[in-house]
């Protein structure tokens, strides 16, 4: 009786939470992006056209997209290695290695940014080591350049990509590879003909996940970026420096739309790969 009641009660409660935490803020955001002033005013699309007409925000949008794409692709490809090792092999120090790789999951973007500065800042650990080894402080200040942003975002995505790929690899049946082996397939053929075709959906999903997280991440670039502004940072600056809420809202809606497109595309592609032939 109590259980049924709980079930009946939890439905509307969930719906209410959904409305309060997701639907209502989204409506406010979209509506805000379609108005002229900070507190209402006439309906307009100017905020959206402004994003594409203003050089800095256009460039930031462009950078956001290609940096996120690049980082997501790198994360998927590179993290497949450790994920494979963690799932299929036992080696001394595996637990520690896994902990080290997945720990940044709990770090905020700002913390990652600071770590990046500590390692690759002007007097970071790496340039000082380089100076000690070679006499020249290579990588000094890399943190503030494009390379630093890419490294920091990549680092930010390692745990997400690794964990996501791990769970996909765990679902793979190793006996299929043994079967392929017995049929004469070498390691590369086993990977391309057996593992990869089964893994495509997971790779796509991981790509979409890391892309969306990078696209929305703000803390990392807040700390390290000098010239490379990304769209989330533009949102922040439009609010902090210029009080232009409608423009900031429009930028947020654009970011949301891109993230939504990415995950829908990944889903569609997964569906095609697994169902239609």
């Amino acid at each position: 009786m109590l259980k049924r009641f709980a079930a009946i009660a939890s439905g509307p409660l969930l719906l209410a939470v959904l409305v309060v935490l997701l639907v209502w803020p989204l409506i406010c955001l979209v509506s805000g992006s379609l108005h002229e002033g900070n507190s209402g005013g006439a309906w307009t699309l100017d905020n959206y056209t402004a994003i594409f007409q203003t050089r800095s925000s256009r460039v930031a949008l462009f950078h956001s997209i290609w940096i996120s794409l690049g980082v997501a692709a790198a994360a998927v490809v590179i993290c497949l290695g450790p994920a494979w090792l963690f799932v299929r092999h036992d080696f001394p120090g595996k637990r520690i290695a896994r902990a080290v790789l997945t720990l940044p999951m709990s770090f905020s973007g700002i913390l990652i940014g600071f770590l990046c500065v500590i390692m690759l800042g002007r007097i970071g650990v790496v340039p000082r080591l380089m100076e000690w080894l070679t006499g020249t402080d290579y990588f000094s200040g890399t943190a503030y350049q494009l390379g630093g942003i890419l490294i920091a975002y990549f680092y930010f995505e390692i745990p997400r990509a690794t964990l996501s790929l791990e769970s996909a690899l765990r679902k793979l049946d190793p006996r299929l590879e043994l079967a392929a082996c017995s049929l004469g397939a070498g390691a590369w053929q086993r990977f391309t003909l057996v593992v990869l075709p089964q893994l495509w959906p997971a790779l796509l999903a991981t790509f979409a996940l890391t892309f969306c997280v990078s696209l929305g991440s703000f803390g990392v670039v807040l700390i390290v970026a000098k010239r490379f502004s990304l769209l989330p940072l533009e949102v922040f600056e439009q609010i902090i420096a210029f009080n232009r809420y409608p423009l900031a809202a429009a930028m947020s809606v654009v970011l949301l739309a891109i993230a939504l497109c990415a995950s829908l595309t990944a889903r569609w592609a997964t569906h095609r790969l697994t169902h239609v032939r």
Binding site: V117, G121, R122, I123, Y144, K226
Partner: peptide, 20 residues
């Protein structure tokens, strides 16, 4: 010549020499 336009207070970075 600028290394960065920090958005957070840089007092400690200057103290450490990260920002000379």
């Amino acid at each position: 010549n600028i290394v960065n336009y920090p958005r957070e207070n840089s007092y400690n970075d200057v103290l450490r020499g990260e920002i000379p």
